[in-house]
Design a protein around this nucleic acid. Sequence first.
DNA 1: ATCATTTGGAAGAGAGGAACACAAACCACG
DNA 2: CGTGGTTTGTGTTCCTCTCTTCCAAATGAT
Lengths: 410, 410
Amino acid sequence: MTLGRDELGHRSETVRRANLSAIVRALHEDGPLSRSDLVGRTGLTRSAIRALIGELAAGDLVRESPATLDGTPGRPSPLVQPDPEGAFALALEIAVDSLAAATVGLGGRVFDAIRTELAPGRTDVDDIVADLADLATSVLDRRPSPAGLAGVGVAVVGVVRRDGLVSMAPNLGWRDEALGERLAGALGTVVPMVFANEADLAALAEHRRGAARGVDDVVLVWGSVGVGGGLIVRGEPLTGAAGYSGEVGHLPVNPAGVACRCGSTGCWETEVGTGAVIRRAGYPAEGGREALEAVLRQAEEGSPRAIGALAETGRWLGIGLAGLINILNPRLVLIGGRLAPTYPFVRATLEAELDRRVLRAARQLVRVTPASLGLDAPLLGAAELALEPLLIDPAAWLRPRGVMTELESA
Amino acid sequence: MTLGRDELGHRSETVRRANLSAIVRALHEDGPLSRSDLVGRTGLTRSAIRALIGELAAGDLVRESPATLDGTPGRPSPLVQPDPEGAFALALEIAVDSLAAATVGLGGRVFDAIRTELAPGRTDVDDIVADLADLATSVLDRRPSPAGLAGVGVAVVGVVRRDGLVSMAPNLGWRDEALGERLAGALGTVVPMVFANEADLAALAEHRRGAARGVDDVVLVWGSVGVGGGLIVRGEPLTGAAGYSGEVGHLPVNPAGVACRCGSTGCWETEVGTGAVIRRAGYPAEGGREALEAVLRQAEEGSPRAIGALAETGRWLGIGLAGLINILNPRLVLIGGRLAPTYPFVRATLEAELDRRVLRAARQLVRVTPASLGLDAPLLGAAELALEPLLIDPAAWLRPRGVMTELESA
DNA sequence: ATCATTTGGAAGAGAGGAACACAAACCACG
DNA sequence: CGTGGTTTGTGTTCCTCTCTTCCAAATGAT
């Protein structure tokens, strides 16, 4: 997520790159802005902004439109916004029981999105790659200028490396599958493709466009069948050494507890995963999504058993979160995915456990709320991931699409 | 630890700042380098390096010495190194049973260092501040040019905010003590003063000059009376929202366990802290350092009980570390502080627990080793912390010490 | 002596800053 | 209801800062 240059030296070219990046990023994260807004935000002069915007507009990354008259005095400042015919990302998602694809432009605008149920048992890599490629084609075909594709981001429900090597995806039965290579082959694209875990991407999306907006230290707990985590540190996703970070589902919280599908015992997800919730409420552990929804309905109707099951889940949520908060000192904790709707019922016991277990200083600083983007968060995060290279270095995008310089054509 | 500018715009001045910073940082982290080395490392041209070095030399930050003839052909390149008469940091430490102070120059050279035992019971803030100020004076007085003091860093055994507000220091019995203000008053310095937890600073030191050198994702477990943690993420310390991060000692690992002094139950430090180790070996929990050393001696002599106590500690170390590794996906885990010498005896059970509990992908990537800097690591880390502003913006240091510009004198 | 490597310095190019004239909106006042 | 003042912004030109390029000279190994 950083520039990734070995060489630390800066030159005037670096300055231009950084300034183009600052402008594109500001427009992407905060929507249409007037030139004046950009002056204020970057600290650059009007002259500089003007030249930079001009370059971006020439490369079809942004577009200027007449100022909106908002009643303030002074000469109106033209509005700068991402060009909807310009660059966009392809976001893909392999979820527990569905596949999804979307095209998303700079600024986070979703052009087209599809999600299809994944037939039970259809977990072979080749099948999923084929289905995903079909979805991708169908959203890509609806874009007027397919050449605007800047990158592909893929959210995967499993432990996945940045390059698409899936080390483990228990829900799919995968182990060491080279998803990246297969998908690149099936899509035949030349643009960069990046992979990440669904919870990591949900956190990225919530940070950019959801409940964690503007908060630089965030922990997201993402419930699906298992439990994943997405961490934002210093305003950026924490990926770890290889992208395997955030596997909070396997935090040991109860060494005397039950066996986890990972081979260990007492992992957090054995206490707060879907299976644990519905088991406590009296459903068979394999009940899945429907059973969880049933428990929620019953809780809303006042069923003591359902309410009790959720409260106990909240207690364990609090225990695990206490550890995360003590370790990371976040300002915000988000409860997302299938856990989000349980929030009203887990809240009390969860907070009580935090009161007991989190050091006072960190406790005072942290707030727990449900996530705001719903189940599409990983897909939106995949789009953010795919756009990242463009945000870091818009100049690289402008250059090859413009007129060749003398030097390059020589 | 980052630049901390609100405004994202870059200008030519930014370039120079960044390049000066790159040079000073390279010299600080990797010792004396020839101009050519710097050319290679920064990617800048000789001319640029020449001018930058000239500016740094004029400001007494670096010094050029004749080239060492190493038998390679070509004109010899002068060696550039931090000026030992130039800038330096004052590092202070409040440890469990001692106080320490040191002056440390750019490049990590320790000029003078003192450590004194803390008399049992002498834990009043005023007393400690007075003692610390005495130590500081004694090392500062031995520097030829006291004006070279660039910053003060303070390592504290407790939960402390960057500005020196100690939220909690159980070993000292402190709660919400404004250590920063008091110490600033006692020292009477005008240079910036920064505080951090001892484990965080030990991690910083190990990352810069110890066993974690060159590794960008690191977890350090620091044993003293309790257990602290220092996390390095993307090559930088993870401080969290307010500097309270890394309190791994209070990771809940055993909800059915014993009460912790923090008020919770089953915290990691109740299983791996000094108290737990010596209790398992048959000593009273208050035995402290001497008892721990006795257990180690007995283990070395082959005592089954001591060996068993350490092995069981290793098991719990592994359980907690498994959580940290699953969350953070580090490349390296360091065992430091009073836990370091136990490493040979905890290793086997620790690694076995990791094999069981860490996801395979992350497990393959991580190595566990003892830390290398010993008990002075927090003090050295405090020096690194104090020097950080200088590394980030050497120009700010050069400017006020040089000749005033027309504009400034006007 | 030759070669590889580096230093030193002058001229050039890229990028943003500063200053000035001018433009377009709101607002108050006659 | 028009008119002029005020405010906020744009366009343009020239300036400054910083790195790069290029050429000549220096230095030590072979």
